[in-house]
Design a protein around this nucleic acid. Structure first.
Lengths: 346, 346
DNA sequence: AATATATATCTAAACGATTAAATTATTTTG
DNA sequence: CAAAATAATTTAATCGTTTAGATATATATT
């Protein structure tokens, strides 16, 4: 089953390889009869042009490299789906590199060198494969801007902010502001927040959104209502307990992710505080489980598909040398479910 | 910034391209001094060999194609992670095709033709790109075996059973048998099952495992304890209500996925039936949320990473023409949490 | 020192397509 | 109907590597 090539077609159809190429690409006129004959032979031998050879000659691979820190992180597949959606519509191929960072080097920046090594290696491999550009999906680069040298190959970062490169990240600040505005509209004013770790930029930006709403709506600002969590469900549980046992407890809690919000729900349940009757809760991420919780949880949905899609769009523009909007921030969407109601006695 | 090639290196190092190639690949002896010189120039110009050209000459791309029906389906990323793990260790690249079937053609087989078209198209593209083999991730092929002609290109199916091809799917029957054995060991004998839709092969196999345990452990067989669900949480909720209001209710329920099991938990909670005190529940899939439910749910973890890894291993064997175990079934693992206890009064 | 042997390097032909430029076939035109 | 114009096809170089086989250079052997 030695592969059939353009030469075989040419021979069997009694034409030159050039002619075959012309019928394949329609780059020149070829007599209908000849075309017919060539096409028939192509069909007969089930000929598919060798894209590798084409790429070599055309110096275009129509392939873009995607580097993901870890594809098993909950929001990554949806971003990849967006990337794929774009790729599909534009006849592009995706060469996927999964750094598997979490599995390899643990969390945090204690192994920056290791991260850099893996990253540089991944970029080099993709360069070798002649990808036309790279989409990066992950959180690390935001604190390490300039660390990665792609040697002029266009790259778009997504799911993180960068200063000097093109990046697409949803609007954290606006999102938490929107959540706050919704709570205020429901009549709340005593609103607590449970943040993620403050070394995280999204955490700080979400806090900005919270604070912006506090000032803009002239809400009472009580330091006891500001709690710092660590993204894990236990911290949501524990901090909610603290909030609920305050002399003046809040009537609503905004948690910076659904995982912590789930902890809040459990704390409320154990304390006999009805959600949403006595306490409203809003999460962040619209994780699948948030719809299975009791009550079904109101939360912020991230525009993941759009991020992937836009990342590709920006990348292709950059490749073509067009001007690109460097820091796009598609909006999150508040998903209204059953964990928010007006405050008691409202 | 015109790409630097082996010719540039050769010129600048005063050697022929052949010599450069030899130092690059170590395929022939080259004088240490020359080698040194060439290497320095390579470093200087940051030369990376063009893998496309190499592939053309060597007739090897070291690339395998992965076709996923939908990367956003919960268990797919973990399989991809396994594939990637293998690829990493063996210096292979992954060309990812996401059919996005669910998004495009809806569920079910009402659009078989459309599925086939997409699939054939995907295979053709990958053929063109000269992948050395294909891993398929999805459920569709099992009922359509033989429908896809890869023209001799090795393919391994995963996450589904096939008859005529190499496939890797976890052992559904053994898994539900294991869950049953565990319940029996805890002292249960009145065990109900909530299945998925019965047009699904995994559903039927899980039922086989259940039934095998019933006979092997001589459990009472009560037709009322056999319920057919539709994989969705509402059906778990509703069927659990029916089970709990039976004159002789079961002391344990095995649900064929975590989503339905979550519904069972909710039904128990609403009916004031304590889990695990009065009712034990086991789910299937070890979805992330199953750890956030109250009580944390005992469930079966699927060997997804291993499936991906093994799929690659089998594929590479097939590519090399070695003998391959055609239908591997790695085992699921029972994750013990808090939703199972001995039956009341035991 | 002349020859044989081993080592290092180079020349040039691939790999499978595309595409200018050249050639050949066909049609138009006066 | 021959010349000119146009259309169809072919020739051969090219993309950036690898690699037989040829050649040059160094080392060993007598």
């Amino acid at each position: 089953m030695s592969k059939v090539g353009i030469k075989d077609i040419a021979a069997r159809a009694n034409v030159s390889t050039a002619t075959v190429s012309y019928v394949l690409n329609g780059t020149r006129n070829v007599k209908p009869a000849t075309k017919e004959r060539v096409l028939r032979v192509i069909e007969e031998l089930n000929f598919k042009p060798n894209a590798i050879a084409q790429s070599l000659k055309n110096r275009r691979t129509d392939t873009i490299g995607v580097i993901a820190e870890d594809v098993t992180v909950f929001n990554v597949p949806e971003i990849i789906d967006g990337i794929n959606d774009y790729a599909d519509r534009h006849d592009l191929h995706i060469l996927l590199t999964n750094l598997r960072l979490d599995k390899r080097i643990g969390r945090g920046f204690d192994r920056v060198e290791s991260y850099r090594k893996h990253m540089e290696n991944a970029v080099a491999e993709l360069q070798g494969k002649q990808v036309e550009g790279i989409v990066y999906i992950g959180v690390h680069p935001r604190d390490l801007t300039g660390m990665i040298d792609t040697h002029g190959k266009p790259i778009v970062y997504t799911y993180c902010y960068t200063q000097d490169d093109i990046s697409i990240q949803y609007d954290d600040e606006q999102a938490s502001y929107d959540a706050m505005a919704y709570l205020v509209k429901q009549g709340h004013s005593k609103i607590a927040i449970i943040s993620g770790t403050m070394d995280s930029l999204p955490s700080r930006m979400r806090f900005n959104g919270f604070y912006k709403a506090v000032t803009e709506f002239s809400l009472p600002f009580n330091p006891d209502w500001i709690k710092m969590g660590d993204w894990e469900t236990e911290s949501g549980f524990r901090l909610a307990q603290e909030l609920l046992s305050l002399p003046e407890p809040p009537t609503a809690i905004l948690a910076m992710n659904d995982v912590m919000a789930a902890g809040v729900l459990r704390a409320a349940s154990e304390a006999g505080v009805a959600v949403p009757g006595e306490l409203s809760v809003i999460g962040f991420d619209n994780r699948e489980f948030s719809g299975y919780l009791t009550p079904r949880m109101t939360t912020l949905e991230l525009p993941l598909h759009e991020m992937g899609y836009r990342a590709m769009d920006s990348l292709m523009k950059a490749i073509r040398g067009e001007e690109v909007d460097r820091n796009q921030s598609p909006a999150c969407k508040l998903i209204l479910r059953d964990s928010v109601a007006p405050p008691p006695g409202d």
